[in-house]
Design a protein around this nucleic acid. Structure first.
Length: 1096
RNA sequence: GGGCGAUUAGCUCAGUUGGUUAGAGCGCGUCGCUGAUAACGACGAGGUCAGUGGUUCAAAUCCACUAUUGCCCA
């Protein structure tokens, strides 16, 4: 017996029951402990942060993370699913700052780092409850009891070990780094903070400073003849405040520049000599407002010196002897400005500054105030006129003075895009600060080649977004001036000339001679640790580490490698599968790829770069740490806009989980669109999934359970496939093909087409064809092989589907499994998630049968269409249907399945048209797929010819396998039979429908016998309705009395036995009544009759 | 501002190397079916395949530009 099913299924409640069952029986643990003949399948969990509420976008990545571990578990792999939590970083800090009403780092320092970090640590798990509930509710099986946590000492110690190994190989370096700096908050902003603050249409100065060129250089370069008149390089900038920090000018090598005479100052009468790009003369000076004296290449200017226009703040170690000269570089554009670019390395042009060895000079400090040293060149004051002035305010003053001193041609304004501090709206400074880097550019080739071994889904990411990102690799800026994060383990001596990287707590204990087992490795405690080497005291640099670096260390740090779990690490590296959203290309995808590449680096004998630790230990050589990755698109709202807190359009997953359920949500997320695409999300669409797929599956399942419980067929008995009717063998073939297809799709990381294929099978093949076609076989009264075959076939298919949907829809799968499988076989695994994936038998996939059934379905569709057109209802039997298919094989196959046509179309006879019957007219088209390339321009001519040719000739040729000769443009061409597409026209006298070579034509002539039979079927239908109205069970037998006249009476008499059989009537009384019975007065096409029925 | 994607019916999506009449589900309308009934079948309306230009005998598909939108970077 199967468990009886409620008339209405409540999926969310059903799912809650499964959660209980899994929890009670500890199924998840068992799934990780069960026998795994195929070894490990390794999954890495990219850690989410629990300091915010989980949303639908978290559900999608967790659903995709879950599906393959489940699949591989059923496939006989062991899948360790260690969870993890990302706890550090700026978002956590900002949350605390917001709560405390802080506006910047000063507030944090005043408040105390210890107290601040304590709050940060607490808030890291503020929403852990919500996360745990969501994780369990959507059945994301992940081991959260044993999860790694990035703030734990063990985790941090492993990241130290990684950094130390890089430091030992000389891959860590200190250098300037241009950061986006907010002078008001006095802090650098993280990239994502910066990108929040870009504003279009920002009004800024647009100024043209005049740098006096070294005339001697110009004479020697033959640009001017003598030193009589001053010549100015005319540059352009939107940041006058950086002019004091200028240390070079850049031109474009292959562009033309000119020496011109033009106004001394915009619109003035007097003139000066300038050098600038020829193409920009008109834009700068205006039409006819200049006189070209001489033209030359940009490259001719390289090496020319010039005079600075303001004094700068010069750091002690900077050498200004290389400053103030012209260089050329590709980046210079002639789109705007003058073609001469002012370089201020400290404020954005750092890379170029390095490339051309310019000193890094400063004009403003980190608070955005102008340094006192900034003053006119000829001034000898101690304190300059702009000292302490906020840089934006200083712009005007500086410009005015330069204009007055004839060092600026023009001052105007423009509108462009500029970044602002998202917090306080202050315009940001590009500012060069000291920072620690990982020299990833040294292994750039390996980053690129290791990427080639990764399977990306969608694959365009590999050489697209991710590949391009790797090709443009720059050194990884590692250090951050923050508080709540992994500390950078670099200690320096007093003057900073020597540094030492710590790789473990033990090492620190050794150097300090203290027991540090209880030390919290976070700031401020770790900052207090200092030690001596060779008599010098070392203190820690107060940096934290980029959180992405920590996440990239996850494969090692999750095991506290190499301090513990050495075997476990080796067994779990690299990952077979990871999955995150597209925004992680430059986040976790990159960070772990980069760390793995660095650690598995086989080294470079040419440059003497040592091999990475993993390569040295022989654990891994030149590899990434993941093999397959699904890169998800983002979830958008119903209107296609991205979900964000500020827009208030975030969908709470619980709204869907509580109504449609987790399986419907999961299925929708898999099926709705390819994983890499962004998805519009709406509860309506989840509901559609529920009705379309899950309710249809449930209907087929409950149909089976209902009749199996009535009939109690012995499902243990075997029925050989050969002894089953064709329709059952078809279902078996379809089912085995389905197993094959779904296995292939999941092996290729394609849950989208897997779910879509299952859906099509369940809805189209199983429910709307097999179950609908075979209902009568289940409720017929005799128990024979045919009936058992039907039960067996449907049962086997339902069990297969149960297992195939298990990875995607774990709940309903479990529900079906418990009832369908465990009720029959108590020795089966106790959960579907402990069961084996179904195997398919290639021999059972009968390709001919599948093809024939496809033709049959096509013919039935056409026949129904013809029925519709003829206006004769299906209940009315018709004498004949005329059928034509496209090939002789299909024709032969269809004859086997003739019964299906008779029943489905309710006709008495099927007649077959020969594929090339002579009395049918054909229209002929060229098969362009075959002859298109061959004919090329002759195709229009071919079409014209075919329109005039009698289709019968070609049809006859095709039947006889002969070529057809057609004259095109005066030349004879010979066409093989396959070169044509034939379409048959309807023969006369039939109600026919034709489509692409298939045809079904109904003979609608009705005999009195047929009319009577049609009438009898109407009567049956009305009696069935009456049974239902009377509240009878499907299996109840009845006594029946019918009162009627004339035609109706005649039909009842003629079909009495069939009526009795169909409506389960033990006896039928004619023109009598049954006492205390259910009674109805009815009519058929105006003819009245009465039904009396009673349960017998 | 730069890079990478997306844009096909009211909605969500298919559409192989360019080649027959661009398909499916939902929704809508009409009709049918009634022992799966929170179903099912048929038919219909609904498409300038985002737009413009190009290549080709032939373009949703290839190329260029534009628009809208998403992500990443500045």
């Amino acid at each position: 017996m199967f468990k009886e099913l409620p008339s209405q299924v409540n999926f969310p409640r059903l799912e809650q029951n499964q959660i209980e069952f899994w929890r009670k029986q500890d199924i998840f643990k068992k799934s990780m402990q069960k026998e795994a003949p195929n070894g490990n399948y390794i999954f890495y969990e990219g850690p989410p942060t629990a300091n915010g509420k989980p949303g639908v976008h978290h559900v999608i990545s967790r659903a995709f993370k879950d599906v393959f571990p489940r699949y591989k578990t059923m496939r006989g792999y062991h899948v360790n699913r260690k969870g993890g939590w990302d706890t550090h970083g700026l978002p956590v800090e900002l949350e605390i700052e917001k709560k405390l009403g802080f506006t910047g780092k000063k507030d944090i320092e005043k408040f105390g780092i210890a107290k601040f970090n304590k709050l940060a640590k607490e808030s890291a798990f503020e929403y852990i409850q919500e996360w745990n509930e969501m994780t369990e509710r959507i059945a994301f099986w992940v081991d959260l009891e044993d999860a790694y946590i990035t703030y734990e000492n063990d985790y941090i110690e492993s990241t130290w070990w990684v950094m130390k190994s890089l430091w030992e190989r000389g891959l860590l370096k200190e250098d300037y780094r241009v950061t986006m700096h907010c002078p008001r908050c006095n802090t650098s902003l993280a990239d994502h903070e910066v990108s929040q603050g870009y504003k279009d249409d920002t009004k800024d100065p647009s100024v043209f400073p005049k740098f006096p060129a070294n005339l001697e250089n110009l004479v020697s370069k033959n640009i001017v003849k003598n030193k009589d008149r001053e010549v100015y390089f005319l540059a352009w900038t939107t940041t006058p405040w950086t002019l004091a920090a200028n240390s070079g000018l850049a031109v474009k090598d292959d562009a033309q520049y000119s020496l011109v005479e033009a106004a001394k100052r915009y619109n003035s009468e007097d003139s000066d000599l300038y050098i600038l790009a020829t193409d920009l003369l008109e834009t700068v000076f205006g039409e006819d407002n200049y006189k070209i004296i001489k033209s030359f290449q940009g490259s001719d200017l390289v090496g020319v010196n010039y005079q600075p226009i303001l004094k700068a703040h010069i750091p002690a170690n900077e050498d200004i002897s290389t400053a103030y000269r012209v260089i050329s570089d590709e980046f210079v554009s002639l789109d705007d400005g003058t073609g001469i670019v002012h370089l201020a390395p400290a404020y954005g042009d750092l890379e170029l500054g390095k490339k051309y060895a310019f000193p890094t000079l400063f004009s403003v400090n980190l608070s955005g105030e102008i340094y006192p040293e900034v003053m006119p060149l000829d001034s000898n004051e101690k304190i300059g006129p702009y000292a302490g002035i906020f840089y934006k305010k200083a712009d005007k003053l500086i410009s005015k003075d330069l204009l007055d001193n004839n060092l600026m041609f023009r001052e105007t304004t423009l509108k462009h895009t500029y970044p602002f501090c998202w917090r306080c709206d202050t315009p940001l400074l590009f500012f060069a600060k000291s920072s620690w880097y990982i020299k990833t550019t040294l292994v750039k080739d390996k980053l690129i080649s290791n990427n080639q071994a990764i399977n990306w889904y969608p694959d365009k990411i590999k050489n697209g977004r991710f590949g391009k990102w790797l090709e443009n690799n720059v050194d990884w800026a590692l250090s951050r001036e923050r508080y709540w994060g992994s500390p950078l383990p670099i200690w320096v001596n007093k003057d900073g000339s020597k540094n030492h990287c710590i790789g473990s707590i033990a090492e620190l204990e050794e150097l300090t001679g203290k027991d540090l087992k209880e030390l919290d490795l976070h700031r401020p405690y770790v900052d207090e640790i200092s030690f001596e080497i060779d008599g010098e005291t070392y203190t820690r640099l107060p940096y934290t580490v980029d959180v992405w670096f920590e996440s990239g260390c996850m494969p090692y740090a999750q095991w506290h490698y190499p301090f513990e779990n050495q075997d476990k690490f080796v067994d779990n590296f690299p990952a077979d599968y990871i999955c995150e959203a597209i925004d992680q290309t430059r986040g976790w995808f990159y960070s772990q790829h980069a760390v793995a590449t660095l650690l598995s680096d086989s080294g470079d004998p040419k440059t003497g770069r040592a091999a990475g630790v993993l390569a040295q230990k022989g654990i891994a050589t030149d590899t990434s740490d993941f093999k397959n990755v699904i890169c998800l698109g983002h979830i958008l709202d119903e209107k296609g806009l991205k979900m964000s807190k500020s827009k208030g359009n975030i969908v709470d997953p619980w709204e869907v989980l509580n109504v449609q359920g987790a399986d419907a949500l999961r299925w929708y997320l898999f099926a709705s669109s390819p994983p890499g695409d962004s998805k519009r999300f709406s509860a309506n669409l989840v509901n559609e999934t529920l009705r379309d797929f899950f309710l249809t599956l449930w209907n087929s399942y409950s149909f089976f359970v209902l009749y199996a419980n009535l009939d109690k067929p012995d499902l243990k008995q075997t029925v050989a496939i050969d002894n089953r009717p064709e329709i059952d063998r078809w279902l078996v073939a379809k089912t085995h093909k389905l197993i094959k297809d779904i296995s292939n799709l999941l092996d290729n990381y394609d849950p989208t087409n897997a779910t879509r294929t299952i859906r099509d099978f369940v809805v189209d093949d199983l429910s709307n064809w097999y179950v609908r076609r075979n209902r009568r076989r289940f409720w017929k009264s005799e128990s024979d092989t045919d009936k058992l075959s039907a039960y067996k076939s449907l049962y086997e298919t339902l069990v297969v589907i149960t297992k195939l949907i298990a990875p995607m829809a774990p709940f309903i799968s479990e529900e079906l499994y418990q009832n369908l499988v465990l009720s029959q076989d108590t020795s089966a695994p106790e959960s579907v998630h402990l069961a084996a994936w179904p195997e398919y038998d290639e021999n059972l996939i009968d390709k001919d049968l599948l093809r024939d059934m496809t033709a049959l379905i096509k013919i039935v569709e056409l026949g129904r269409s013809a029925r519709n057109a003829s206006k004769v209802k299906i209940r009315q039997p018709l004498p004949e249907v005329l059928v034509r298919v496209k090939s002789t094989e299909e024709l032969a196959g269809l004859k086997h399945l003739e019964d299906q046509i008779l029943e489905e179309l309710n006709v008495k006879k099927v007649s077959y048209l020969d594929v090339h019957a002579d009395f049918v007219d054909y229209s002929v088209k060229p098969n362009l797929f075959l002859v298109g390339k061959r004919l090329g321009k002759l195709i229009p001519e071919m079409r014209k010819q075919l329109a005039n040719i009698d289709g019968k000739t070609i049809s006859a040729n095709i039947r006889d396998g002969k070529n057809t000769i057609i004259e095109l443009a005066g030349q004879e061409h010979s066409f093989e039979p396959e070169a044509f597409l034939l379409e048959a026209q309807s023969p006369d006298g039939y109600s026919a429908v034709e489509d692409r070579g298939y045809l079904a034509a109904l003979n609608t002539t009705l005999s009195p016998e047929l009319i009577q039979e049609g009438l009898s079927r109407d009567i049956i239908r009305l009696i069935q309705n009456a049974r239902k109205t009377a509240g009878l069970e499907v299996s109840d037998h009845i006594n029946l009395a019918l009162t009627a006249k004339a035609e109706v009476l005649a039909a009842i008499e003629a079909f009495k036995d069939i009526i009795a059989f169909e409506v389960l009537a033990d006896k039928i009384l004619i023109n009598q009544e049954i006492a205390n019975s259910h009674s109805e007065n009815l009519e058929i096409e105006g003819k009245v009759f009465t039904i009396n029925l009673k349960k017998s």
